[in-house]
């Protein structure tokens, strides 16, 4: 599903440049649930941004579902993001003047799905994260865990190939974190490919594979026995 070859990325900071990614080689198959771990500054967020086409790499190859991702125009990148990727952020990033349902329907709106169909679909995904009764509520009326579940529903609404989660539990207490992870695991059980960036060990162990990043290189890449989050909920 995802294939990365010899990926380099550096940032210019005044006169000196900061080499963040120093040749990443990495492959993700369909249906995998991968945790990307590393301390701050290890380059994990940069990697996720490049995977999410929010940032471009300096050199190297990136193929997503057999489509080479290179030198995209903003318009094209937006199109690919909409079609291929769903984002889950640490700070939820819901649009605060839109209701939960409208937030979920947003990616469909950008696909120009007709209004009625859009709302039906959004309602379906909202139902799936267990928030159907909250459809008309604004994000400010929801708890942190609920917000993240709305964000997950939004990420899934467009039926993307890959879900990218950047510290999805970073702003939540451990109980809600496990609830969110439970949801992510269930979505993965349905066959969706998910990448989770985290620095929390317990969250990482709820995935099926851990990729350890340190100073811009992969130092460890191992398959693990998945810990089900259900038991903590």
């Amino acid at each position: 599903m995802i294939e990365i070859k010899d990926l380099h990325k550096s940032y210019k900071m005044g006169s000196n440049s900061l080499h963040v990614l120093k040749g990443i080689n990495f492959k993700v198959e369909e249906g995998e649930l991968v945790a990307i771990m590393g301390s701050s500054g290890s380059g994990k967020s940069t990697l996720l941004n490049i995977l999410g086409m929010l940032d471009g790499a300096d050199s190297g190859e990136y193929t997503l579902d057999n489509v080479p991702i290179k030198n995209l125009s903003e318009t094209k990148a937006a199109q690919y993001r909409n079609k291929f990727l769903g984002f889950i952020f640490q700070s939820f990033n819901l649009i605060n003047y839109k209701s939960a349902l409208e937030n979920v329907a947003l990616p469909l709106y950008y696909q120009k799905v007709p209004r009625k169909e859009r709302q039906e679909k959004a309602m379906k995904y909202l139902d799936r994260v267990g928030l159907k009764p909250w459809a008309a509520h604004l994000p400010s009326e929801l708890s942190g865990g609920q917000k993240q579940r709305v964000a997950i529903a939004r990420a899934m609404a467009a039926e993307p190939k890959v879900l990218l989660a950047d510290e999805p539990t970073g702003a939540l207490d451990s109980k809600t974190s496990y609830e969110v992870m439970d949801l992510i695991q269930k979505i993965n059980d349905d066959g969706n490919t998910i990448l989770v960036v985290t620095h929390e060990e317990d969250i990482a162990h709820m995935c099926k594979r851990i990729v350890h990043l340190k100073d811009g290189v992969i130092v460890e890449d191992k398959k693990i026995e998945q810990v089900r989050a259900e038991q903590y909920v």
Partner: peptide, 16 residues
């Protein structure tokens, strides 16, 4: 700015 960022991450076209 942030909202626009989110919307673009979700795939809204710049022209839109």
């Amino acid at each position: 700015t942030k909202e626009i960022g989110i919307r673009r991450a979700l795939g809204e076209q710049p022209w839109s």
